[in-house]
Nucleic acid binder design. Structure first.
Lengths: 202, 202
DNA sequence: GTCTATAGCTTGATAGAC
DNA sequence: GTCTATCAAGCTATAGAC
């Protein structure tokens, strides 16, 4: 009765799903076993460092996918607004329209300093990517950076609101306004009609 | 050797601090014992329902304080902008300038449905409070609601960015722009100078 | 690379004395 | 209302066969 070998990409995908959903402390080996179909000793064979090593590996892998797919448009040629729009589409996909949480969030609560530092670097790259688009749209570097931080926070926060109130609309709205938030030349009081903003409400 | 009795408000304050910091699964009785100075059986005497009852009680209490202090200006008389400013000041205080997390966030990851529902109602009241200020500023109800959701998300997200990148500035900036974000008549492309926004960067 | 079996510790929870 | 003592279950982790 030979078991079918579970491929490495499958293990990563299934395990990361659990950590995204339950966080670091909330994830037990029982959960990981149920998700992968592997037995505990097999997980230890693949990740001798235990849970900490698993979470490090998952973070690296998810990070790579996020950078290479979701954030990629930030580093390509083309109209800043259109690149932001493409990132918004991919963010929607990546976060399951607001039904999946962010690993950088769930994993950084009561986990070790090394993991938090790793997640910090990942988030910095995310911010850098957004900031690049804002700069390409003509914003001064300092302002671009602030806009990028605010945009990342808006997304992270919208996921929390989505989880807590079980309403995904704020998340989808945040993605909808992302291209504008990242690239518009100024915020503040304007004479543009309220109707403009209301039209964008979905 | 009689022990000094620990007052109920002290227990609530210390226990809620732990849950804010570590989340639901991340908090163990060992943590609660260390924080309160009480022994396990004493905690069970006060909260026979165990961890679930503790977290419910903490949520109710923190909720009450948040509504009665932080959100209070939303339901008072006066200029909407000034009321938003006062809430921003109190939010800064409540979240330790970005060094303390939100219970509604940390407690809703891998905890039971009842707790998530409770947290959901708390967040709805928060959104309602913000929306009221936006409506008082002259915004139509639907737009006011969307602005309120976005503002709550911005705060929650800024706390995550603060935790992950160990940089509190995004959080403080979010509070700085809260009065404007909540009460301005329109967003979008405007002719107001970029300098206006940059001046507000701290 | 996967499995069975087991070790030892920590967890949430309870009984009962003071 | 607080304590000591104890419990079973769950946890992370390892040894060793196939």
């Amino acid at each position: 009765m030979r078991r079918v070998k579970v491929t490495e990409p499958q293990v990563f995908a299934r395990v990361s799903r659990v950590f995204r959903e339950k966080g670091y402390e909330g994830t037990s080996y029982a959960d990981l076993i149920a998700a992968t179909g592997l037995v505990k000793a097999s997980l230890y064979h693949r990740f001798p460092g235990g849970k900490e090593e698993i979470v490090e590996a998952v973070l690296s892998e998810v990070d790579r996918e996020f950078a290479e797919y979701v954030l990629r448009p930030a580093w390509q040629e083309g109209s800043p607004r259109e690149r932001a729009r493409q990132m918004a589409r991919r963010l929607k996909e990546f976060y399951g329209s607001g039904g999946l949480w962010c690993l950088l969030d769930t994993i950084t609560l009561s986990s070790n300093a090394r993991t938090v530092a790793h997640a910090g670097r990942s988030m910095e790259f995310w911010i850098d990517s957004f900031a690049r688009v804002a700069r390409d749209a003509g914003l001064p570097a300092k302002l671009a950076r602030a806009r990028a931080e605010a945009a990342v926070a808006a997304i992270e926060g919208a996921l929390i609101v989505s989880r807590v109130t079980k309403n995904r609309r704020p998340f989808l709205r945040t993605l909808g306004s992302l291209p504008t938030d990242l690239t518009k030349r100024a915020v503040g009081v304007s004479r543009a009609a309220v109707a403009d903003e209301m039209e964008q409400l979905r």
